[in-house]
Nucleic acid binder design. Structure first.
Lengths: 348, 348
DNA sequence: ATGAAAGCGCTAACAC
DNA sequence: GTGTTAGCGCTTTCAT
C-alpha cells in the first residue's frame, strides 16, 4: 500500500492550496461544483484525489446544522424484537434506503423507561436530523418522549394510545383493514359461510384494524366467532381449539397473521379436519419462510414490508426537506398507507 | 408542557451569561466541573437547567476530535444475519455496553462488495471513533477495507483469511478449542469410545477450532468419524445419517453447534436409537430456546455471547483511550478469549 | 480558580 | 465565476 506518511488529515484549505484556488471554490467543487469553471473543477478534483481528502463531518454539521444521520429507535416491550423476521425486513428496507440517500443509521435501543429520557436527550442534542420509530404496544411513553424532543419522526405502523391521539404523527402502515376485508371477501367468494377470526393482540393497531376489516365484511358476526390470539403460533393453535369448541361447524377461519394461521393449521390437522376441504384458512403478512412452507401452503395477505421501511425513510426525508425550505411547519404531515394483495395458495 | 417559545437553541455562551461567568468556566462545569468553585458550579448548573442547555455535539467533536460514536459493521455473506439469535445476543451486549459508556451505535450494513468502499470512506471520514465487526466467512475484503480505513477496530470471532494473516487484529472469541475438548472429554469420561463429530463450515474459524479441539482429545480418530455440516439443523440431520452409515456402532457424537445437534437428535430418533442410551450427544453454544427445549435437553458447551459483545466494546474503548494517551501505537492489541462451560443436561 | 482569546474545518453571504 | 470574510459552538492553552 503506497501510504504517504500521513501527517494531519488534509483539510479543505490544503486542497485549495494545492489546486491553486480559494477555500470557497474548493468547497463548491466538493459539494457538486455548481457554478465553477470546468477547468477549476478538474483541478480541485485532482487535488482531492491526490491528497485523499475527506470532508470533516463535524465541521460541516456545525455550519449546516445537518448531521446526515437518522435515528432508528427500537422499543422493546417484548423479548426478541430483532429476531422477528417482520422487523428485520423493515429495518433492512430502512437501511437500504438510508444508504441510497447517503444517510447514516444510528441505532437506539430502548430497553426500559430509563432509556426514554436518555433517548429524548440524544434526539434533542442534535445528533440526528430525524427519527424512525415503531408503533409497538406499551410504547406510549417512548412515543411521547420522541415527540417532546422536537425531532421530526416517522412511525412504522399506526400509532396508538392517548399520546398519539391528537398528535397526528406521520406513519407508514399497510392497509390492514382493507387487506382483512379482501381476505374475508375471498372466503365468502369461495362459498364459505361460517367464517371465524383469530384476532391479534388488542393493544396493537394492526390487529385491531384487521379485526375491523373482518367486521366490515361480516357486520353481523356473532362475537363467538372471534377468538383472541397474540400473534404466536401457539396462540393460534389454542384459539382454533376454542373456535372449534364453540362452532364445530365452521368452514373457514381468517387469522390475523401467518404464525397464528399455522397454529390453526396444526390444530385442524390434529382434529383430522381437511384444509381447505373442511375448513379454509387465510393468514396475513405472507412471511417468507412461513406462509409458503406451511402445509398446505397458506393463502394470505401480502404486504411489502421492506418497501414500507424504505417509505418511512422517504417520508422522513420529505419532511426534513420541507422543514428546511418552508422554515416553519409546512402542510400537515402525510402518512402513507401501502396496499396489500391477496396471495392465493392452497389453504383457501 | 411549559415550553418557552424556544428561539434558537441555548449555547454555552448563553449559559455563561446567565450564570455570570465566562464561557470557559461554563464549559468546565459542563464537563465535570473539576477545578471550579462549588458556588460557581451550582450557578452554572442552574443556568443549564433553566435554559435546557444541551451541548452541541458537532462543535464539541470539531475540537476534541472525538465523536462518541462507534460503528457496528454487519457483513452479510448469508441471508438472515439479524434473525440469527447468536448475532442478536451479541449485538445486544454491544448495545448495552455502548449505552453504559455513553457512546452511540452507528449501524453499517454491508450487503455487497460495493459497500466496502462506502464503508471504508465512512470510517475514514471521522464519523466514528472506532468500529466493531464480525468475522463471518467470505469477508476478507470487508476486513481489509476496515483495516485500510485506519480506524481502530475490534472483531467478534477470530478473523481468518490472508487479510487477517499477519494483521494481528484484536478480537473477542470464546475458547472454541478448549470448549470442544471439554465436550469430548466429557463423552470419554462417561465411557464412550466410538465418538463422532459433526463439523461446522470449513470457512469459519469457530468451526475449525472446535474440530481442532475434537482432535486434541482424539488424535487418532479416523477421518470417517467426522462429517461435514453447515451449522443448520438440516445439515446436522444429514450428517448424522452419514455417520450412522459409516459407523453403525458409534456411541457418541459431538456436534459443532446446537442446531446441528438437534438435527442429529432427530435422525437418531427416526432410527429408533435412544439418547443417551445408545448414542450420547453434545452440542455447542447453549442457545437459549434450542438446547434446553431439545428432546432430550441437550448437554452442550455454553459461551457467554452477550458478554462477548460487551467485551468487544470494552476492548475497543481500551484501545481508543490508549491511543489517545500514548499518542502512537501502544502495545500490541490484545485479544480476549472467553471461557466456556460444559452444561450437563440429559443428552450426554 | 477564572477569564480572554485562539482556532477546530467548514459553508455561505457578500464583494469583486 | 471566484475570493474574502465572518461565523457555527465548543475546548483549551495561556495569562492573570
Amino acid at each position: 500500500m503506497t501510504e504517504r506518511t500521513m501527517g494531519p488529515r488534509p483539510t479543505l484549505e490544503s486542497v485549495a492550496a494545492r489546486a491553486g484556488v480559494s477555500r470557497a471554490t474548493a468547497s463548491r467543487v466538493v459539494n457538486g461544483g455548481a457554478g465553477v469553471r470546468g477547468a477549476l473543477v478538474d483541478k480541485v478534483r485532482r487535488a482531492v484525489e491526490e491528497l485523499g481528502y475527506i470532508p470533516n463531518h463535524a465541521a460541516r454539521t456545525l455550519v449546516t446544522r445537518r448531521t446526515g444521520a437518522i435515528a432508528v429507535i427500537i422499543g422493546e416491550p417484548e423479548f426478541r424484537v430483532f429476531s422477528d423476521p417482520f422487523f428485520e425486513q423493515q429495518v433492512r428496507g430502512i437501511s437500504r434506503e438510508l444508504t441510497a440517500q447517503d444517510a447514516q443509521l444510528v441505532l437506539l435501543w430502548a430497553e426500559g423507561p430509563d432509556d426514554h429520557t436518555r433517548i429524548a436527550r440524544y434526539l434533542g442534542g442534535g445528533h440526528v436530523d430525524g427519527a424512525l420509530a415503531f408503533s409497538l404496544h406499551n410504547d406510549g411513553a417512548l412515543t411521547a418522549a420522541i415527540g417532546r424532543s422536537g425531532v421530526p419522526a416517522v412511525f412504522g405502523g399506526r400509532p396508538d394510545g392517548p399520546e398519539a391521539a391528537g398528535a397526528d404523527v406521520p406513519y407508514v402502515d399497510c392497509d390492514n383493514r382493507g387487506g382483512a376485508r379482501e381476505a374475508v371477501h375471498h372466503l365468502v367468494s369461495i362459498g364459505r359461510r361460517r367464517i371465524a377470526h383469530i384476532a391479534g393482540p388488542r393493544d396493537q393497531t394492526s390487529a385491531l384494524d384487521r379485526l375491523a376489516g373482518f367486521h366490515d365484511v361480516l357486520p353481523h358476526a356473532d362475537p363467538e366467532v372471534v377468538s383472541q390470539g397474540d400473534f404466536t403460533t401457539e396462540s393460534g393453535a389454542r384459539a382454533m381449539v376454542e373456535l372449534l369448541a364453540r362452532r364445530p361447524d365452521l368452514d373457514a377461519v381468517f387469522a390475523a397473521n401467518d404464525l397464528m394461521a399455522v397454529g390453526a393449521l396444526r390444530t385442524l390437522r390434529e382434529r383430522g379436519l381437511a384444509v381447505p376441504g373442511d375448513v379454509a384458512v387465510v393468514g396475513f403478512d405472507d412471511m417468507p419462510s412461513v406462509a409458503e412452507l406451511a402445509d398446505p401452503p397458506l393463502t394470505t395477505v401480502r404486504q411489502d414490508i421492506e418497501g414500507m421501511g424504505r417509505l418511512m425513510v422517504r417520508l422522513l426525508m420529505g419532511i426534513l426537506n420541507h422543514d428546511k425550505e418552508a422554515g416553519q411547519e409546512g402542510g400537515a404531515p402525510v402518512s402513507v398507507i401501502t396496499p396489500t394483495a391477496l396471495v392465493r395458495r392452497a389453504s383457501a
